[in-house]
Design a protein around this nucleic acid. Structure first.
Lengths: 222, 222
DNA sequence: ACCTGAACACCGTTCAAGT
DNA sequence: ACCTGAACACCGTTCAAGT
């Protein structure tokens, strides 16, 4: 007899903070962060919503937990004497996690983050910069400029690929006055046509920007 | 006799889409985007929530309207033969608007934007780049790399100044293992102490990053 | 034509009550 | 000790009803 998880009779795993958080991450990955309600989470856990409050102070605490879980998934890159390569790898590792959890950017922006996963991540970057001879000032600037990329979530208004949780592309609102945007049209046709710029690859754009910034700091370091 | 707005008796201005949107912007500026509910908006307008649906298809339409209103506030900079100066001024103008409307970054990220204010903004940037001799490829990269700064909302995880709508700084969670973050400590003390790096000014960091990127593109253009 | 009241299906959170 | 039921104050949105 196959026992389904939902048919919670005898086998129900005890509720723990970890199980609550992991299930919430599941829910967020599937339906976006707004799909994480105490009631739906309880349902998925086979429990009434109010039971969750035993393992989580309130919803804020739950969301903070989600961030910590996701940040902990960023794999620290191989130690590398080349500071640029080290930071590049770290940013790309962070981006991989963010693509798995598309709700992260908003959470990171909106919540002050100070947990161990966050601090450890930043500490590694700073240590790398100092080891490469960055001054305090320059390292401070670098942290600010790179921050969104270090956590993988440089958000791109011109994302050409469909975002998870987003609706299919709304019909463009431009028909009436197409001729007001000649440069835009030129670019759009170049990007979308064969033999033009080719498909716009968000990974490529992410790395292009990252390298541009890293090269800039290399020059300033000298 | 002073007639208060709330005492809606004879003088109540007729409900229009514009009045709805402007009032919603007010509400968002005061209490964050989550304070914009149809019910509260109706209350501020002196009307039941359901009356708003005459001027707005649904809440999505309302939020799209908010973006359009805010984007339209970005003042186009003076024409300038120096492409770097032109784009710099534009980014800074956008940032000024964003500081007035701190809910904009999230709205811009989460909603596909295609209204006239958005398109006009991008068109101007592209035209500037083309006029400066950028290739299609390079202009395309520039648009991606600069996008968040062009709209003023490069978000900074290390924002040292209190964000409107955010709670007072949560007590840092690090006491137990302070020694695990030596580089962080070094930086934090340097930033906060007199005679150190001085106060961290977000405007300065924004412009530092902007210039770093613009200089990078100037080099690539050659 | 424009606005309202009542209703529905959702929220987070509390608190006393059950086992 | 752990979970539940009922309740409260909120959501967005509908639809028939009022003026």
């Amino acid at each position: 007899v196959a026992i389904e998880e939902e048919t919670s009779t005898e086998r129900r795993a005890p509720l723990t903070r970890e199980r609550v958080l992991l299930t919430a991450v599941e829910l967020a990955d599937e339906g976006g962060i707004d799909a994480v309600s105490m009631r739906k989470l309880g349902q998925r856990l086979g429990v009434e919503a109010m039971a969750i409050y035993r393992h989580v102070r309130d919803k804020d605490d739950l969301l903070d937990g989600l961030i910590e879980v996701a940040l902990a998934e960023i794999e620290p890159p191989q130690p590398n004497d080349d500071w640029k390569a080290a930071i590049r790898d770290r940013a790309i590792a962070a981006r991989r996690v963010m693509l798995r959890h598309p709700w992260m950017p908003r959470m990171l922006e909106e919540r002050a983050v100070g947990g161990p996963a966050f601090l450890g991540h930043v500490e590694s970057v700073l240590a790398t910069l100092f080891a490469a001879g960055f001054s305090l000032e320059l390292a401070h600037h670098a942290l600010h400029v790179l921050s969104s990329r270090l956590f993988g979530f440089q958000q791109d208004l011109f994302d050409d690929s469909p975002k998870p949780g987003a609706e299919p592309p709304p019909t463009p609102v431009m028909p009436p006055t197409l001729d007001r945007y000649p440069s835009l049209i030129q670019m759009a046709t170049a990007v979308s046509h064969d033999g033009g710029l080719g498909y716009c690859d968000d990974d490529v754009e992410f790395e292009f920007g990252l390298d541009l910034i890293l090269d800039g700091f290399e020059r300033l370091r000298g």
